Simulated assay, not measured.
Amino acid sequence: MTGPGWRGWRAATEAALYGPDGFYRRPEGPAGHFRTSVHASPLFARAVAGLLCRVDEALGRPDRLDFVDMAAGRGELVTGVLAALPAGTAARTRACAVEIATRPVGLDPRVEWRAGLPEAVTGLLFANEWLDNVPVEVAQTDASGVPRRVLVRADGTERLGEPVTGAEAAWLARWWPLPAEEGLRAEIGLPRDAAWASAVSRVERGLAVAVDYAHTVDARPPFGTLTGFREGRGTVPVPDGSCDITAHVALDACALPGGRVLTQRAALHALGITGARPPLALASQDPAAYVRALTSAGEAAELTAAGGLGDFGWLVQPVGIADPLAQASPPGL
């Protein structure tokens, strides 16, 4: 029994983010509180459009090509991808945005807006910063070194609950082993593993990609990563609907057979987004073009920066096709 007002972080986060008055129901959307790669530069959508074109080629250019924007926010990515596609490819593309919030006013009418994934996908399913908002339980070692579930109230007050057992204990032992030292924390990623497997199961042929803050088993943070965001700033995670609640993703645990984890830097470099400065000679030959190229290079540098967006993880999961990013090297996160 958890007692009055106490519940695990998974249930508390679910209500705080997705309940009737939850954070993701708010009209300003995610962009009002934090900046993702989608908001940083239109180059990101162009890169995703380029990836969709590679998937299209690998599929043999089918009559209908699916693009699914999972956790679509206010439709910024799907809008940018459609705008960046060649006209012929765009005409064959069925664009679908999956999001619990209501459809934004003025969204491109070609975009299907829905609360759940389509039954079957032939093309690219792209989940940008979705898995970090799939709620998980938090474990913390007690004075004896035993991992216990962390319980929380709506005001953010915590206490330790029952020991972690069963499938959750097995997951910790395999993917986030905690030394027998008091106060160490971990986020139990089982719900994310299941959510990703369910999403990939909808892809009949094509590619599924999850992009997120991530870590791997050889470098798990000893005190976990649970945090909050409000109005562009990190804050204490309080499950009352006033802030985003997020935790980095163990993408290596989510990966299904054939999947692999890259950094965003490696993935975008493979898609031609490098951040290289334009040649100085262009400044005298075409000053306006030089300024445009310099701006683009700056945006690309932000998207691929070490210590920043470039360190995001990309979990790349081909289904029935060769990996379109096969030439991208998989440096550690």
Rank of each mutant, 00 (worst) to 15 (best):
Q285G: 13
D286P: 02
D286I: 01
D286S: 09
D286N: 10
D286G: 01
D286A: 11
D286H: 02
P287T: 07
P287N: 10
A288Y: 05
A289D: 04
A289T: 03
A289H: 01
Y290P: 07
Y290D: 03
V291S: 02
V291I: 07
V291Q: 11
R292G: 08
R292N: 11
R292H: 14
A293K: 06
A293N: 07
L294C: 08
T295Q: 12
T295M: 03
T295K: 09
S296D: 14
S296K: 06
S296A: 15
S296L: 14
S296Y: 00
S296W: 05
S296H: 05
A297D: 00
G298I: 04
E299I: 02
E299A: 12
A300G: 10
A300Y: 01
A300C: 04
A300I: 02
A301W: 02
A301F: 04
A301I: 04
E302L: 15
E302G: 11
L303Q: 07
L303R: 04
T304C: 04
T304L: 02
T304H: 00
A305C: 15
A306R: 15
G307C: 08
G308K: 13
L309W: 07
L309R: 08
L309G: 06
G310D: 06
G310A: 08
D311I: 06
D311R: 09
F312Y: 15
F312R: 10
F312L: 15
G313H: 11
W314I: 08
W314K: 10
W314N: 10
W314D: 09
W314R: 11
L315Y: 08
L315C: 13
V316K: 04
V316Q: 04
V316N: 03
V316S: 03
V316M: 04
Q317H: 12
Q317M: 11
Q317F: 11
Q317N: 12
Q317G: 13
P318G: 09
P318L: 05
P318C: 07
P318W: 09
V319A: 09
V319G: 12
V319E: 12
G320I: 14
I321P: 02
I321M: 03
A322D: 12
A322F: 00
A322S: 08
D323C: 03
D323Q: 03
P324L: 02
P324I: 01
P324Q: 01
P324T: 01
A326T: 07
A326M: 05
A326I: 09
A326V: 13
Q327Y: 02
Q327P: 12
A328T: 09
A328W: 06
A328N: 06
S329F: 00
S329N: 00
